[in-house]
Design a protein around this nucleic acid. Structure first.
Length: 120
DNA sequence: TCGATGACCTCTA
DNA sequence: ATAGAGGCCATCG
């Protein structure tokens, strides 16, 4: 699951710390940028999380799609390619994406099947 | 050194 | 529910 991220992959320790936290996110669970910053020991530097994900190499295979904005809002341009991919990958994990929003905190797999009209 | 720039967040109106 | 203003903070040119 939580794949290890070597220190030498990036000179900035904060970036590596963020990658580690993201890599540890369980499948089907979503969190916010702010929460990740907190867990990485960066306080309110939520923007750093966005930065770290943006510069991350695809080779890392980070589950970046499990990271959303506050209130469960997808924080990517809706017209972009990345947005579509995030929607699909979340849906594939049973996370309901409704009009650019996901259910934070609750989001059990059960009502995912009941509520789930995957409108990406 | 400094202003611009975000895959952000919170509070108002 | 939506929009705008401010705040935040590391990076970048």
């Amino acid at each position: 699951m939580a794949r290890r991220i070597p220190d030498h992959l990036h000179p900035n320790p904060a970036v590596v710390a963020i990658w580690r936290v993201v890599a540890a996110l369980p499948k089907g669970q979503v969190t916010t940028y702010g929460a990740i910053a907190e867990r990485a020991g960066l306080g309110r530097s939520a923007r750093q999380v966005g930065y770290a994900l943006r510069i991350a190499s695809p080779d890392l295979q980070l589950p970046w799609h499990r990271v959303v904005g506050a209130g469960g809002r997808l924080s990517l341009p809706r017209e972009g390619e990345a947005y579509q991919q995030q929607c699909r990958r979340l849906s594939a994990e049973g996370v309901v994406v409704n009009n650019g929003r996901v259910r934070l905190a609750q989001s059990t797999s059960l009502d995912a099947l009941l509520w789930g009209r995957q409108r990406c």
